[in-house]
């Protein structure tokens, strides 16, 4: 009978190796391996004059894309991770946030270094 060995060892190129079980060091701040800003079609734009720093946007943002810069005393938006869900716009108590189309901005949406 012919006896076939099916395969013994796959060869994986260096750039495609992944850690065992896909476990990676926990991100200290941002998971740069998965930028989600390019999912966005609209973005929240803040009017700092109207903002009373109530932190509603920070509380309701599901992606932690708003934080308070305590020195400058203003809210800072993270373009790399905001998916444009606009919950912050709906939850803002003083109407200082507006939704604007991505195409109105130079450069448009955030692009990945390597497009899919």
């Amino acid at each position: 009978m012919s006896k076939k060995k099916y395969c013994e060892k796959f060869s994986v190129p260096e750039h495609l190796t992944v850690p065992l079980g896909a476990c990676i060091p926990a991100p200290v701040k941002e998971q740069r391996a998965m930028i989600t800003g390019n999912w966005r079609t609209e973005r929240p734009v803040i009017d700092h004059e109207k903002c009373n720093l109530c932190l509603n946007c920070f509380i309701f943002c599901p992606d932690s894309s708003w934080h308070l810069d305590e020195e400058e005393e203003k809210m800072v938006w993270n373009a790399d991770f905001c998916k444009g869900c606009l919950l912050c716009v709906a939850e803002c108590d003083v109407d200082c946030l507006d939704a604007e189309n991505e195409l109105n901005f130079k450069g448009g949406v955030v692009r990945l270094d390597k497009p899919y």
Partner: peptide, 27 residues
């Protein structure tokens, strides 16, 4: 003392590599 992420989001090109890892384990 050594925080890690289990089951993180990955790039699509890492998907086959993870599947291959399991296939290798079965070999």
């Amino acid at each position: 003392t050594k925080p890690i992420s289990h089951g993180p989001q990955i790039y699509p090109d890492q998907g086959p590599a993870i599947n291959l890892q399991r296939a290798q384990a079965f070999l």
